[in-house]
C-alpha cells in the first residue's frame, strides 16, 4: 500500500485509473450486454415503435396528444399497454367517430393486424402495461366451462346478462353483447377494462379464470351454441317472451277465434 500511495501523485496515475475504470465498465458491459439476436429483435422492435409512432401521429394524436399524454378529447395512453390498443383498435372502437355518442361502439376495423401491432408497440413503449395475450392464455385447452359459468355470473352478468347478451348502463352507455367476440378480445377486455368496464387484472381473475370464462362464453354464446328449446328470442328473458306470447300466441289464437266464429252453421234461407 505504501508503494501505491507513494506513486499516487505520479503524472500518469490519472491515466492508469482512467484505463482501469474503462476496462472495468467495458468488461462488465461485455458480460451483461445482450447477444446478437437480441440486438436484431431490438432493431425490429424499435422499427415497429417508429412505424407505430407514425401511425399514431396520423390517426390518434389529435385526441390522445402527440406523445400519448392525453388531451381534453381523449385519455392518456401512457401505461395502458399493448393489450388495450389491440382491443380498442382491433374491434374498431378506435379510432372513435368524430361525433361520439355515449361510448365508442364496435365497428369496422380500419387498421391491419400488422399496423395494430405497430401501434401497440409504440403505446407499450410509452409505459409498462398488459401485453397482448397469447393463444395459450385464452385458448380452450384446460378450461373448465362450468367454473367459467359461475365466474361469469358472479363477475360479468350484472352488466352483460346471463349469457352475454349485453345490457343497458346509465345515460345511453351499455355493456355490449358478447356474441362471437374473438376470445383474444374478451381476454384483453377483462385485462384492461375498456370504456365503462372495470378491469380484472390477474390478481382479481387469474389467467385460468379468464380462460374458463372465455370457454363458457364459447359454449353458451357462439354460433355453434345449441338451443335445446328452439328459437332463442334474443336470449333476453321474459320481456321478449312476453312480447312473443302476445303477438304470436294470443295473436294466432285471436286469428283462430275469428276463423271459428266466422264459420257458423247458417240457417238455410228458404
Amino acid at each position: 500500500m505504501k508503494k501505491l500511495s507513494a506513486r499516487r501523485r505520479h503524472p500518469l496515475a490519472a491515466v492508469v485509473v482512467l484505463l482501469l475504470a474503462l476496462a472495468a465498465t467495458g468488461g462488465l458491459y461485455a458480460f451483461v450486454a445482450p447477444t446478437g439476436k437480441a440486438q436484431a429483435e431490438e432493431t425490429a422492435q424499435s422499427l415497429a415503435i417508429d412505424e407505430g409512432k407514425k401511425l399514431y401521429a396520423v390517426g390518434c394524436a389529435s385526441c390522445h396528444g402527440t406523445g400519448g399524454q392525453g388531451t381534453s378529447d381523449g385519455p392518456s395512453l401512457v401505461g395502458v399497454g399493448a393489450a388495450a390498443v389491440d382491443f380498442q383498435v382491433g374491434t374498431g372502437r378506435m379510432p372513435a367517430a368524430t361525433s361520439q355518442g355515449a361510448q365508442a361502439p364496435k365497428k369496422k376495423v380500419v387498421y391491419t393486424q400488422a399496423e395494430i401491432d405497430q401501434l401497440a408497440a409504440y403505446i407499450a413503449s410509452l409505459g409498462a402495461g398488459p401485453n397482448i395475450p397469447t393463444e395459450a392464455e385464452y385458448g380452450p385447452e384446460g378450461a373448465d366451462i362450468a367454473k367459467g359459468g359461475e365466474l361469469f355470473r358472479t363477475n360479468c352478468a350484472q352488466c352483460h346478462n346471463f349469457t352475454g347478451k349485453g345490457g343497458a348502463l346509465t345515460h345511453g352507455k351499455y355493456a355490449p353483447a358478447l356474441d362471437d367476440v374473438d376470445p383474444k378480445h374478451i381476454y384483453e377486455a377483462m385485462q384492461t377494462g375498456p370504456q365503462n368496464m372495470p378491469s380484472f387484472p390477474d390478481t382479481i381473475l387469474s389467467e385460468q379464470n379468464k380462460k374458463d370464462i372465455i370457454a363458457y362464453l364459447d359454449a353458451v354464446n357462439s354460433d355453434d351454441t345449441e338451443n335445446p328449446g328452439g328459437l332463442e328470442l334474443g336470449g333476453l328473458g321474459p320481456v321478449s317472451e312476453g312480447l312473443f306470447a302476445w303477438v304470436f300466441g294470443l295473436g294466432a289464437l285471436i286469428a283462430v277465434a275469428v276463423w271459428v266464429a266466422a264459420r257458423t252453421a247458417k240457417a238455410k234461407k228458404s
Binding site: A157, G167, A168, L236, V239
Partner: peptide
C-alpha cells in the same frame, strides 16, 4: 351473491 342485468318478471 349473483345477479344479472335484464332480470325481469314474466309480463
Amino acid at each position: 351473491d349473483q345477479v344479472s342485468t335484464g332480470a325481469q318478471p314474466d309480463w
